[in-house]
Nucleic acid binder design. Structure first.
Length: 461
RNA sequence: GGUCGGAUGGCCGAGAGGCGAGGCUCAGGACUGCAAAUCCUGCUACACGGGUUCAAAUCCCGUUCCGACCUCCA
């Protein structure tokens, strides 16, 4: 069996994964800043790292998965004014939207989901450490800044040089020692929410919450830190700066998922090209959207189109159809099995596309076995496919995807069976006109029939 | 200006010196009362120009085009 290798952004290379504590993995994923409903780019990140998590679990690791919610920032405050709601109501509204989207796509709830506003104490402690050791300064206006020029290793993740950065146009040097120093803490402005600190009332800057919360739940050093590519700079760079200036080792492996793009461009609200998860879910099921988002390699840009989405959905239904037919023929749901080819692909930096090629092969063999009623062959293929789908979070037998209640189901089963008896009788007497009429009529109601050597099977369209 | 990524068949999407990834579409065939489903066969691509090599989509040099980040971003 191969061993897990992951691409580490920090070293720009594929590395063999070595957990700090044998058998355990600590992961921190930058979750949502809850200031708008999630679009499919946000949820792709959730899906990609959920696949990582499921693979680690399947590889017998004990996974501590922390995904934060940043529930206080400039945009949330702006949105609160715009929507005429309290800032905390805005944050909760969109946090729920994210939670619903994660659930619809079968993204496992994190081990813990810390909110920034619940960790002001930890942030204050971190800032105190940084001020005490001279890494940060409070110039007296209520802000606290990190002095980036003092850090020898600053910008190593993004491989940039401090002097090459374009200084922000609006950098205010009244209090900052260097325009590139960033705010750990922002002094309270009238009307803004604030929390007391030794340096005055204020609210967190963007980056400090992740350092404080990662430390709180994962310790000074942990295994994997993840997020979108666009977080490399400044967010992750600044997290490293704060944490390492405090003397913490911080993350060993940095993983970044690529974006969902439209017309080659990153999704964003300002471009008007963002696609909300709730909108897409009107066209395909959650499991199908997940299949689509998870099917590309996590480090590759995924160029969104409705055609590609539909193609992925059709492809998934084909696999799903095989599993359902298999369970009918075998009279049971097969147990998931991880094939060695699937394991090899996943161990190679989560090479889902390569894994998918293996699923196609199993599907072909499985369908052939189904035709020849080779029960052993059916079970082997179905098990391997189900095993792969369970890691990808797309197992159609997973109870989270169950749609109708068993009561409704039994009524439906009975009614369709009645129609099938009528049609079978018509076919028996070679009255194909009547048989086809029955098929057409129930097709109009959304029930699709397929005649097989084992009899007629039906499914909802 | 600095940093990072990309360009692969009609479409989607892997690969990273040699063994035609895979899927979708399309065409033909098998099976079938018909349909559906399924299987089989066919469709041999790597932005451009040089170079290295027995061998290049892959490595090197150059070019074009596209995108991202540079303190709001998944």
């Amino acid at each position: 069996m191969s061993e897990l290798h992951l691409y580490n952004t920090a070293t720009r290379s594929l590395e063999k994964f070595k957990p700090i504590n044998p058998g355990k993995v600590g992961i921190y994923l930058c979750g949502a800043t809850v200031q708008a409903p999630p679009h499919i780019g946000h949820i792709r990140s959730g899906v990609n790292f959920d696949i990582l998590r499921r693979w680690l679990l399947a590889s017998n690791f004990d996974v501590n998965f922390i995904r934060n919610v940043t529930d206080i920032d400039d945009k949330i405050l702006h949105k609160a004014v715009h929507e005429e709601m309290a800032w905390w109501a805005v944050a909760m509204k969109y946090e729920r939207a994210f939670t619903q989207a994660y659930a619809a796509l079968n993204v496992m709830p994190p081990t813990y989901e810390p909110r920034a506003t619940g960790h002001i104490t930890q942030m204050t402690q971190l800032m105190q450490i940084l001020i005490d050791n001279g890494s940060a300064y409070a110039p007296g206006n209520g802000d606290v800044y990190l002095e980036v020029r003092k850090l020898a290793s600053y910008l190593t993740l993004s491989n940039q040089k401090l002097d090459d950065l374009q200084p922000a146009d609006d950098a205010d040097l009244t209090f900052k020692k260097d325009p590139r120093d960033f705010a750990l803490w922002k002094a309270a402005k009238p009307g803004d929410p604030s929390w007391p600190t030794p340096w005055g009332p204020g609210r967190p800057g963007w980056h400090v919450e992740c350092s404080a919360m990662a430390h709180a739940y994962l310790g000074e050093s942990f295994d994997i830190h993840g997020g979108g590519l666009d977080l490399i700079f400044p967010h992750h760079e600044n997290e490293i700066a704060q944490s390492q200036a405090a003397g913490w080792g911080f993350a060993n492996t940095w993983m970044h998922n690529a974006w969902v793009t439209t017309s080659g461009e990153k999704m964003s609200k300002s471009l008007g090209n963002s696609l909300q998860v709730v909108e897409i879910l009107k066209k395909v099921r959650g499991i199908e959207l997940r299949w689509y988002l998870g099917s590309a390699h996590y480090r590759s840009m995924l160029e969104f189109s409705f055609e590609a989405l539909e193609e992925a959905a059709v492809n998934f239904r084909r696999i799903e159809g095989f599993l359902k037919r298999s369970s009918e023929v075998l009279g049971k749901n097969v147990e998931p099995v991880i094939s060695s080819s699937f394991a090899d692909a996943m161990n190679d930096d989560l090479a889902v596309p390569a894994a998918l090629a293996g699923i196609s092969e199993s599907l072909r063999l499985g369908n052939t076995a189904l035709t020849s009623n080779d029960k052993k062959g059916i079970e082997t293929s179905a098990s391997e496919i189900r095993g792969a789908l369970s890691i990808l979070g797309c197992d159609p037998f997973d109870e989270v995807f169950a749609t109708s209640s068993s009561d409704d189901q039994s009524v439906l089963d009975g009614l369709v069976a009645l129609a099938l008896q009528q049609r079978a009788a018509a076919r028996e007497r070679k009255d194909f006109a009547s048989a086809d009429a029955i098929r057409d009529q129930i097709a109009a109601l959304g029930v699709i029939l397929e005649d097989t050597p084992q009899g007629t099977r039906w499914s909802l369209s």
